[in-house]
């Protein structure tokens, strides 16, 4: 899909929202260990950007990455199984929430090191282009990543070599607890402009606004343009990580949280549909997620004897650690 499709966009936003809510239930139930970084409130960005991409295009995500993986087309059931550490998961239970990947749909992984994925995606898109394709890539990162040197180096490489990568900054106002004002000198868009990259700031709470901006950038890139940056202003509705559900960290004023939550991408996208269509999509999403939970919890746990499987693609076997 490259044109507006309000129903499809709403469906993706709603799917991510309910996926996250079901995942938090599974965290609370002890089925997902290690917790998650909920994408709640930011769904419109992944949904909007991925709606502007084709199946062959490549994506990398972040530690707050469930939305990116789902929006690009990964199976929610296998994604949830991954979060639950089952062999039926996308990564066979080896990656978990922060490393979910589905190379089959062009997701080269959520990446848990802030700012690290931009250069990886740039190299991947460069190589695919070298092979004669016209695909592009989108790499998601937060406002915290704009102070990471390796991301700025990636801006330079992509711009210098005109690799068509859409750098998508999800500016939710906080790097964990650090506000943007306390961390970012200059501006985020200004960083792109310094490398000669076009930068567009959008309302990240409106999935259609994000989609339209991404589609315009992707069209320019596919026609031979270089990389671009989209700064999507958003608000994280929930915790940085679910550990905050148990340990209260005082860094966001209650009024700010209330204001932020008042602009909900689910309501903005859903408000564009007639109630019957919306209800139908909601019911369909509930059914998909109910089946996903069943699938995830029915999946076998990995055999501890396989803990080192996939360590080496070459088939090398590592020495085990026992005496």
């Amino acid at each position: 899909m490259t044109g507006p499709d309000p129903a499809a966009l709403y469906r993706t936003v709603r799917l991510i929202r309910r996926f996250e809510e079901r995942a938090i239930e599974l965290v609370d139930a002890g089925e997902i260990v290690g917790g998650i970084h909920p994408y709640l409130g930011q769904e419109g960005i992944a949904a909007g950007v991925c709606a502007a991409l084709t199946a062959g295009d490549l994506v990398t995500g972040t530690h707050r990455g469930h939305g990116h993986v789902l929006a690009k087309g990964a199976d929610p059931a296998r994604m949830l199984a991954e979060l639950c550490g089952r062999v039926t998961g996308l990564n066979r239970g080896r990656g978990g929430s922060m490393h979910a990947a589905d190379f089959g749909v062009g997701v080269l992984g959520a990446n848990a090191i802030v700012g690290a994925a931009g250069a990886i995606l740039t190299g991947a898109v460069w190589e695919r282009r070298r092979r004669g394709t016209d695909l592009v890539g989108a790499t998601f990162f937060g406002d915290g990543a704009v102070n990471e040197g390796m991301l700025l180096e990636a801006f330079n490489l992509a711009a210098l070599w005109r690799v068509p990568v859409l750098f998508v900054c999800e500016n939710n106002g906080y790097a964990t607890t650090m506000p943007v004002a306390g961390a970012v000198a200059g501006t985020i868009a200004g960083r792109a402009e310094a490398f000669g990259m076009p930068a567009t700031a959008v309302d990240g709470q409106d999935p259609e606004t994000v989609r339209a901006a991404a589609a315009a950038a992707v069209a320019r890139m596919r026609a031979g343009g270089g990389p671009e940056l989209i700064e999507a202003h958003t608000y994280r509705f929930d915790a940085h990580h679910t550990f905050e559900h148990r340990v209260r960290l005082d860094y966001r004023p209650p009024q700010e949280v209330a204001d932020g939550r008042s602009r909900d991408p689910v309501e903005i996208a859903g408000g564009r549909l007639d109630p019957a269509t919306r209800a139908e999509i909601d019911a369909s999403v509930e059914a998909v997620l109910a089946a996903a939970v069943d699938f995830a919890l029915a999946g076998p746990h990995p055999d501890p004897a396989t803990a080192l499987d996939h360590l080496y693609a070459s088939g090398l076997t590592a020495r085990t650690g026992g005496g």
């Binding site: 490549l58 190379f103 080269l108 690290a116 250069a119 990886i120 995606l121 740039t122 190299g123 991947a124 898109v125 460069w126 190589e127 695919r128 070298r130 092979r131 040197g149 390796m150 180096e153 990636a154 330079n156 490489l157 210098l160």
Partner: peptide, 22 residues
């Protein structure tokens, strides 16, 4: 490459993920 060791090292990782042998 420019003097961007971290970026071009990960660029190589990405190229490898896409089929290259850098």
């Amino acid at each position: 490459t420019p003097l961007s060791e971290q970026a071009f090292t990960s660029f190589a990782t990405g190229a490898a993920l896409a089929g290259a042998r850098p």
